[in-house]
């Protein structure tokens, strides 16, 4: 099945791109000039969480840059100063928006690994993805349950004589 890009999780030291396939979530971690891939199989998922938090980094950098431009504009003065100060507006607005609208992080915990996806200012999309992942995991895990021996046909059991004895007590 084709991979579908579902989101990213970047911070100061790591850069992750997250994809969904038919049976797993794939996490591509950039490691210099190589990409290291981890998989969280839907069959192994134990917990999916979603939480919101204020992203400190983007707020710090956007507001910091806005204040820096504003300061430069004030010191320079005149038309050039006002123009520079005007350029700080988008960064200032973005910083304020990031304070108001928190980022949503969806985390998928598997048996051996986990995947995190961050959504900045896309709360509804994060909720949709959370529901979609829960549904996919439920489907994968319900399909995993093998039929009990009683449900298997007698022909099927006759073809595999060794398998019928595994559930019985070993010969004394």
């Amino acid at each position: 099945m084709k991979r579908r890009f579902i989101g990213r999780y970047n911070d100061v030291v790591t850069r992750h791109a997250i994809y969904a396939t038919g049976d797993a979530i794939e996490v591509d971690e950039r490691d210099n000039f190589a990409i290291v891939r981890k998989r969280v199989f839907f069959e192994d998922v134990l917990l999916i969480t979603s939480h919101e938090r204020v992203g400190i980094g983007p707020i710090f950098f956007s507001l910091g840059f806005a204040f820096f431009l504003l300061l430069v504009g004030l010191i320079a003065g005149g038309v050039a100063g006002w123009t520079t100060a005007l350029f700080s507006t988008p960064f200032f607005v973005y910083g304020i928006l990031r304070i108001q609208v928190k980022e949503t992080i969806v985390t998928v915990f598997g048996r051996r690994s986990r995947a995190r996806i961050r959504f900045a200012m896309r709360r509804r999309h994060a909720q949709q993805l959370y529901d979609e992942l829960c549904e996919q995991v439920r489907r994968a895990q319900s399909a995993m349950n093998p039929p009990a021996d009683e449900e298997r046909s007698s022909e099927e059991r006759r073809e595999e004589p060794w398998l019928t004895s595994i559930d019985s007590a070993p010969p004394q």
Binding site: V45, L46, L47, I48, T49, S50, R111, Y130, R138, M144
Partner: peptide, 8 residues
């Protein structure tokens, strides 16, 4: 946080 637990 919001959580959904699974029992694979």
């Amino acid at each position: 946080f919001k959580a959904t637990v699974f029992h694979p």
